[in-house]
Design a protein around this nucleic acid. Structure first.
Length: 437
RNA sequence: CGGGGCGUAGCGCAGUCUGGCAGCGCGCCUGCUUUGGGAGCAGGAAGUCGGCGGUUCAAAUCCGCCCGCCCCGACCA
C-alpha cells in the first residue's frame, strides 16, 4: 500500500496562501482558466454551488418584494457618459464593441467590418441602461417603487485576475431600485445589506462585518456604499457584497422623473446592490483547509456521498444494493434547512482510496463508505469533512440516517463558529488610522 | 499598468550555461491483478520544445523582435 502524503493540497495555507488557493480550486474541480485571458470556466461542481447560492439568495430577494428581469449585455457608449464619476470609475476597464461583422481578410483571416455609428460597451454594471428604461417606466409617484434584480454576467477588463475572486467576466446579481423618497431609498440600501449579511452568514457560514466604504472606495457615482466584509484565512478582508445609496445622481443622469403627489416633477431616488461569483472564492478561503475545499452543507451540491466498497463481483452487487438502499432512506430525510437530504452514490469503478480523496478535495460534507463488513453489521463507516482525516467512525445504518440532518446542522454551525473565532483572534481595535498598518 | 518569474506531451518538470537522436514523473489507453487512506505488473498512444526571423553543417539550447501565463504591488464585486 502506497504511503499517502500528509495533505491533499500542496503547498499548505501556511507555506503559500495564494498558491494554496489556486490548487484548491483546481483540486476541487470547481473552475479553470480559459483560452480567453482573464475569463474562467466554471465546472459542474463549482457551478452547482453557484446555482445553490442563486436559488437561495433569489428566494430572499423575492421575500423582500423584488422581481427578476433582464437587461441587455450592451450599453450605448453615450449612456455611460451620462454620469461623470461613473465614467471615470469604469472607463479604464471596459470592453468596447465597434463592429458588427467579419469579412475575409487578405491573408485568409477575418477582419472586422461594418463599423458601428456608436460603439457599444459590454456592461461593467447596468445602472445606466437600467436607468434609461426606468426613465420610461416612471411617470408618476404611483409607478414607484421599482424593485428589480437581474442575474447576469458583466465584464470588467481587470489587469490581474484570480479564479472566482476577480475575473474579467463574472456572474453576479445586480439589484436596481427606484423610490419616491430619500428615506425609502436609504431603507432599501440598508435592507439589502442586511439580506446579504444574513445570506453570507447563515448560508455560506462566513461571519461578516458591515460598514460603509470610504469616499475613495465608494461605487463610482454613489452617494454612499455599504458593504459586508469577511476575513479570509490569510487575515485579509474580502469584500463580499455591496449596497449603494445612489441618491438622485443616476436619476438625474438618466432622467428618472416622476410627478409627485403635489403635482411637481421630482427626480427619483435610486439604489443598486450586488454580489458575485466572488462569494465562491470567499467560501474557499474561509473554510478550505490543507486537504482542499470544505463546502458549507447548507449550499453544498450534495450533502452526502456514498462509496460502495467491494473486492469481488458478488460483493460489488451487494455493496451497490446496500448503498442504494441507504441513499433511498436518506433521501426521505428532511434537510435542516428545508427540502430533502441530497445524496450521491459514487458507483465509479476506481480505487477506493483515490475516490475517497477526490471527495475530500471537493469538500463533500459527509462521506460514507459501505462494504462487506458494514453490510454484515448493518452499519456504515462515516467521515465528516469538518473533522480530521483520521476522525472517522462506524455507526449503525439507521442510527446514521436519523442522525444525519443533525450532523449537517452541526457542521454548518461549526464552520461559522470556527471562522468567527479565527476573525476574533486576529482582530484588534485601533483608534486612529495612523495605527493601521 | 510598475517589479519579478516562467513558456518543452493533458498536468508538473529536467534538458538551455557549454548547440549534436525529444526526456522524466504523474495522468491517459489496453490487459490482468486490485479496491476499507491516494493501487501493482506488463504493453501502448501522445510534442510544429509559445510565435516569427537570424546565426550555424546542425538550434529546445545562441541572437533579435513579438505573444502568452503566473506571482507581488496599485485598482476592483
Amino acid at each position: 500500500m502506497a504511503k499517502a502524503p500528509q495533505n491533499a493540497i500542496s503547498p499548505t495555507r501556511e507555506e503559500d496562501y495564494a498558491e494554496w488557493y489556486q490548487q484548491v480550486v483546481r483540486a476541487a474541480d470547481m473552475a479553470e482558466t480559459s483560452p480567453v485571458r482573464g475569463c474562467m470556466v466554471i465546472k459542474p461542481w463549482g457551478y452547482a454551488f453557484w446555482e445553490n447560492i442563486q436559488k437561495n439568495m433569489d428566494a430572499m430577494f423575492k421575500a423582500t418584494g423584488h422581481s427578476n428581469a433582464y437587461f441587455p449585455l450592451f450599453i450605448p457608449k453615450s449612456y455611460l457618459e451620462k454620469e461623470a464619476e461613473h465614467v471615470e470609475g469604469f472607463a479604464k476597464e471596459c470592453a468596447v464593441v465597434t463592429h458588427h461583422r467579419l469579412e475575409a481578410g487578405p491573408d485568409g483571416g477575418l477582419v472586422p467590418a461594418g463599423e458601428l455609428e456608436e460603439p457599444l460597451i459590454v456592461r461593467p454594471t447596468s445602472e445606466t441602461i437600467i436607468g434609461a428604461l426606468y426613465a420610461k417606466w416612471v411617470q408618476s409617484y404611483r409607478d414607484l417603487p421599482i424593485l428589480i434584480n437581474q442575474w447576469a454576467n458583466v465584464v470588467r477588463w481587470e489587469l490581474r485576475t484570480r479564479l472566482f475572486l476577480r475575473t474579467a467576466e463574472f456572474l453576479w446579481q445586480e439589484g436596481h431600485t427606484a423610490h419616491e423618497t430619500e428615506k425609502e431609498a436609504w431603507e432599501e440600501t440598508k435592507l439589502m445589506l442586511e439580506v446579504y449579511r444574513e445570506f453570507v452568514e447563515d448560508y455560506l457560514a462566513m461571519p461578516v462585518l458591515t460598514g460603509s466604504k470610504t469616499p475613495n472606495q465608494r461605487f463610482p457615482g454613489a452617494v454612499e456604499t455599504l458593504c459586508i466584509e469577511a476575513m479570509m484565512q490569510d487575515r485579509k478582508a474580502l469584500q463580499a457584497g455591496t449596497s449603494h445609496f445612489l441618491g438622485q445622481n443616476f436619476a438625474k443622469a438618466s432622467g428618472i422623473i416622476y410627478q409627485s403627489r403635489e403635482g411637481k416633477e421630482e427626480h427619483a431616488w435610486t439604489t443598486s446592490w450586488g454580489t458575485s461569483t466572488r462569494l465562491i472564492g470567499g467560501a474557499i478561503m474561509t473554510h478550505g483547509d490543507d486537504d482542499g475545499m470544505i463546502m458549507p452543507p447548507r449550499l453544498a451540491p450534495n450533502h452526502v456521498v456514498i462509496l460502495p466498497i467491494y473486492r469481488k463481483d458478488e460483493e460489488r452487487e451487494a455493496s451497490l444494493a446496500y448503498a442504494e438502499g441507504i441513499a433511498a432512506d436518506l433521501r426521505k430525510m428532511d434537510s435542516p434547512w428545508g427540502g430533502k437530504v441530497q445524496v450521491l452514490v459514487d458507483k465509479r469503478d476506481m480505487n477506493a482510496g483515490e475516490k475517497g480523496w477526490e471527495w475530500v478535495k471537493k469538500g463533500m460534507p459527509v462521506r460514507v463508505e459501505v462494504g462487506p463488513r458494514d453490510i454484515e453489521k448493518n452499519a456504515v463507516f462515516v467521515a465528516r469533512r469538518d473533522k480530521g482525516p483520521t476522525e472517522t467512525y462506524g455507526q449503525g445504518r439507521d442510527e446514521f440516517i436519523q442522525a444525519l440532518p443533525g450532523v449537517l446542522k452541526e457542521m454548518q454551525d461549526g464552520l461559522y463558529a470556527k471562522a468567527l473565532a479565527f476573525r476574533q483572534q486576529h482582530t484588534r481595535d485601533i483608534d486612529d488610522l495612523g495605527e493601521f498598518t
